[in-house]
Design a binder for these strands. Structure first.
Lengths: 200, 200
DNA sequence: GATCGAATGTAGGCGTCGCCAACAATGCTG
DNA sequence: CAGCATTGTTGGCGACGCCTACATTCGATC
């Protein structure tokens, strides 16, 4: 679906979006290693230099891809977060959403976490990351306010939860954990994170 | 040092090792993106096709690099593990060693976790991963035996601790956590992991 | 110790890539 | 409708991975 053969007379209309869409498809199907500007141009039906008008560089396209990824991830997290829930189910739901995203967008997530500190692009990027991380921080902050979580530097608490979630996502993206196993284990994972591993 | 223009007697002697060494240096200094077989050949002083005799393909060289990385990481973990210690300091030491490796070998670690399941090379690789992960599993198993940790599927416990550690390593490798901050936070991190985030 | 095959290195070439510059078609704004 | 910025095209440059054919060296066998 979605291969409408409309006549694109010279000017494509929205080449930039088309390139990003094609890139994301290729990324998902063939991996980041098989992403080439020339091939994308061929898929979209423009000349091999056309992408250069919209992305100064291959890295610029990857950055745009990552940015879009943060957008989608942020929406998924927002949608999954119910501030009314008590801590444990709330965090579980959020974790499930994050891991779900990791499952459906393994390659993209890898790209999102690849550090390429382009001095300018990193502004938008940093903002996007901040917005994503902020979601988790909010949960922690709320929980602290309600006394559902120990006092202490929120930074530290964010770090533990963030690292654990991201580590799981990386395991999924790296293929050393099947999606089923990951989703099935979310509840236990969050439980262990909140209650600790030592006997009480 | 080490750039002696000796007359190469046609056969290099140990080209494979020289290539791996040069590759690791380049990896550390310029990143994986700047790794090219032709450039490596130039650095070592052989023709552009010589590497092909030792690595069927670029990916094969990357695999060898990753394998060597697991070797070094395994040694670092072994050296840092003191089975006589109680759980918390033992795990802290192990975590410190792992994060130290991540700090000193960020790019390499990324390579090690990149999934490229070459059907054959993955055997050695899987074994190396297993040996690395096994170190952590041993700590958990010992702790369970001693009653320092809750009962339950060891797999689950390994997953939480492994994910947390790996998440931290990824944060470091990704540059969103400074080495100092990471090392300084290890103790708190392990503490939170073991004692949980909920008030007792 | 000479011989011959296997291992290792060389030379050259093919197709692809990212990037750049020069040119052409289109859209926009006065 | 004139002029200019935007967007797409063509062609080319250098580098890359990989392949094949060929050269040199090593080592096992007689």
């Amino acid at each position: 679906m979605s291969h409408m053969p409309e006549s694109r007379p010279y000017h494509h209309g929205d080449l930039r979006a088309a390139l990003l869409a094609a890139a994301e498809r290729t990324l998902r199907e063939k991996g980041v290693g098989s992403l080439s500007l020339r091939e994308l141009a061929r898929e979209v039906g423009v000349s091999h230099a056309a992408p250069g008008r919209h992305f100064k560089d291959k890295q610029a396209l990857l950055n745009a891809l990552a940015l879009a990824g943060y957008e989608r991830l942020g929406q998924a997290l927002d949608a999954a977060d119910d501030p009314a829930l008590p801590l444990e189910p709330r965090l579980t739901a959020l974790a499930r959403a994050y891991l779900g995203f990791a499952i459906d967008n393994a390659e993209l997530l890898e790209l999102m976490y690849a550090r390429k500190h382009d001095p300018d692009a990193s502004e938008q990027m940093a903002a996007a990351v901040e917005r994503t991380v902020g979601n988790l921080a909010q949960v922690v902050a709320d929980a602290q306010k309600r006394g559902e979580i120990i006092a202490g530097d929120p930074e530290d608490l964010n770090l533990v939860t963030g690292a654990t979630l991201h580590g799981m996502a990386a395991f999924i993206a790296g293929g050393m954990l099947t999606p089923e196993a990951a989703l099935a284990g979310v509840e236990t994972l969050v439980h262990h994170l909140l209650h600790g591993l030592k006997p009480r």
